[in-house]
C-alpha cells in the first residue's frame, strides 16, 4: 500500500510540467527515502533525476518499494485537473495496475479522484557518481531561462565559459553572434538575485540549446538554478524543490569532430 499526501500539490504539478516534454514515459520509484524518478529522453541524450523526500510529505506511507510506470503526458493531464492550492494524495495498492491521484481543495469542500492506468516500462537505471566540478554557477533561474531563450533565437548551441571574469553564454547562427556575460554579484539585496561562481579552473563547454531550453521549464520550481560544469562530464542543471528535494537535468557536452 502506498499513500503519499502532499500539502503543496502545486509542486507536483510543476514537476510534471517541467519534464513531460523531455521524457515520454518513466517509472516513479517509491521507497522509505521518498518519491523519485530517473529517466532519459527518447534519444538518450539527456537524463532527469527527481527526488521528493518522504519528510516533505504530510503523510508518507510506502509499505514496500514500488515502481510505477506512467506516461508523463497522461499524468500531467490528470494533475492539471488539480487546483494550484489543492492537496494531492497519490495512492496505489501493491501489485495493482492503477494509481489514484486525489485532489482536495484547501477548505475540503471538493474532493476528486483520478485513477490512471499504470504501464510496464523497461528502463535502465544509471549510476550517477559523485563528481568534482571545475566550476559551479548559481544564478536566478529566471535569468538563466531568459538567456537560453534569447540565445536560441540566434543559434542552436550555447558555449558556457567560466573564467574569473564571470560566466559567458555565447552562440552563433546564420544571422550573427551573441555573447552574454554575467559577473558574480554576491552583494545584492535579495540572496535569490545573486550570481555566485565557484571556480576551481576555467571551463568552456558547448551544449544543445534545445535541451537547455527544455530544462528551464523547471524554472517555476525554484528561484535559483545551479549549473555544475566539468570538461568530459555531463553538465548538471539543478533546481532545488523547497524543503523537499531536487530536479536535476544532465546533458553531455557536444564534442568537435
Amino acid at each position: 500500500m502506498l499513500e503519499l499526501r502532499l500539502l503543496q500539490g502545486s509542486l507536483l504539478k510543476k514537476v510534471l510540467e517541467s519534464i513531460k516534454d523531455l521524457v515520454t514515459e518513466a517509472n516513479f520509484d517509491c521507497s522509505a527515502t521518498g518519491f523519485s524518478l530517473q529517466a532519459m529522453d527518447s534519444s538518450h541524450v539527456a537524463l532527469v533525476a527527481l527526488l521528493l523526500r518522504s519528510e516533505g510529505f504530510e503523510h508518507f506511507r510506502c509499505d514496500r518499494n514500488i515502481s510505477m510506470g506512467m506516461k508523463l503526458v497522461n499524468m500531467a493531464m490528470m494533475l492539471k485537473c488539480a487546483g494550484n492550492d489543492d492537496i494531492i494524495t497519490i495512492k496505489a495498492d501493491d501489485g495493482g495496475d492503477t494509481v489514484t491521484f486525489m485532489f482536495e481543495s484547501p477548505n475540503q469542500d471538493k474532493i476528486a479522484d483520478f485513477e490512471m492506468k499504470l504501464m510496464n516500462i523497461d528502463s535502465e537505471h544509471l549510476g550517477i557518481p559523485e563528481a568534482e566540478y571545475q566550476a559551479i554557477v548559481r544564478m536566478p533561474s529566471s535569468e538563466f531561462a531568459r538567456i537560453c531563450k534569447d540565445l536560441s533565437t540566434i543559434g542552436d548551441t550555447v558555449i558556457i565559459s567560466v573564467t574569473k571574469e564571470g560566466v559567458k553564454f555565447s552562440t552563433k547562427g546564420d544571422i550573427g553572434t551573441a555573447n552574454i556575460v554575467c559577473r558574480q554579484n554576491a552583494t545584492v539585496d535579495k540572496p535569490e538575485d545573486a550570481i555566485i561562481i565557484e571556480m576551481k579552473e576555467p571551463v568552456s563547454l558547448t551544449f544543445a540549446l534545445r535541451y537547455m531550453n527544455s530544462f528551464t521549464k523547471a524554472t517555476p520550481l525554484a528561484n535559483i538554478v545551479t549549473i555544475s560544469l566539468s570538461s568530459e562530464l555531463p553538465v548538471v542543471v539543478e533546481y532545488k524543490i523547497a524543503e523537499m528535494g531536487y530536479i536535476r537535468f544532465y546533458l553531455a557536452p557536444k564534442i568537435e569532430e
Partner: peptide, 14 residues
C-alpha cells in the same frame, strides 16, 4: 561539425 554524445556514455548501468 560537432557531435552530441549520449548520456549513457558517461554513466554506467546499475
Amino acid at each position: 561539425g560537432s557531435k552530441q554524445p549520449a548520456i549513457t556514455k558517461f554513466f554506467s548501468k546499475l
